[in-house]
Simulated scan of single mutants.
Amino acid sequence: MTVIALLSVAPVTEDSMAEDVADAVAALDEAGVAYETNPMGTVIETDDIGTLLDAVQAAHEAVDGDRVSTFLKIDDKRASDQRAFEKVDAVEEALGRPATSHQDPDDG
């Protein structure tokens, strides 16, 4: 079984959240889970739901703030062990190209 989740943890603030997000990501390192951070959140991959939830709790608690917002979306695929990269590979195969675009908005 593979459990894949999209996690976003951030303090509710108008200031930069980079240091707080870095604290949450560091907590994922300490939890020993596989993850990939992107501009909108972090994708976590574990073998079981318990490990995932422990890692999410650690990331949530790592953010120091008066108010912390955490969003979690879980894909608990119980019938197979499809990894996160394999999901992306399947989309790219159907698309016929890499599923990325690195367009710079300043390039016009």
Rank of each mutant, 00 (worst) to 15 (best):
S80Y: 13
M17S: 14
E45Q: 07
P39T: 03
A94Y: 09
L72G: 03
V63E: 00
M40Y: 06
R78N: 13
T42L: 05
P98V: 10
L52D: 01
L72K: 05
K87W: 11
T2G: 07
A27Y: 06
T13F: 03
A27W: 01
S80H: 12
V43H: 08
A62H: 02
T46W: 01
E45N: 03
T42Q: 01
I74N: 04
V43F: 13
D66Y: 07
P105S: 04
D64G: 09
T51N: 10
D107T: 11
R97H: 11
A99V: 08
S80N: 15
I4T: 10
V12K: 13
F85Q: 15
D76C: 04
P98E: 13
G32V: 03
D107Y: 06
A84G: 02
V25Q: 00
V21K: 01
D66T: 14
D76A: 06
L7Y: 00
E30L: 10
A24I: 03
D75K: 09
N38H: 14
L53C: 04
L95A: 11
R97M: 11
P105N: 04
A94R: 08
V43I: 12
Q103W: 15
A27L: 08
F71K: 15
G41R: 00
P11G: 11
I49T: 09
Q103L: 15
A62K: 02
K73C: 12
E36P: 01
M1L: 07
A22I: 03
L52Y: 01
A99M: 08
D89A: 14
D106F: 14
A59E: 02
V21P: 02
H102N: 14
I49E: 10
E36L: 12
S8N: 11
D48L: 04
A31N: 03
E92M: 09
A59H: 04
L28E: 02
A79N: 15
D48F: 05
D54F: 05
A27Q: 03
T13Q: 06
A24M: 08
R78I: 12
A31T: 06
L53N: 05
V21Y: 00
E61Q: 12
P98N: 09
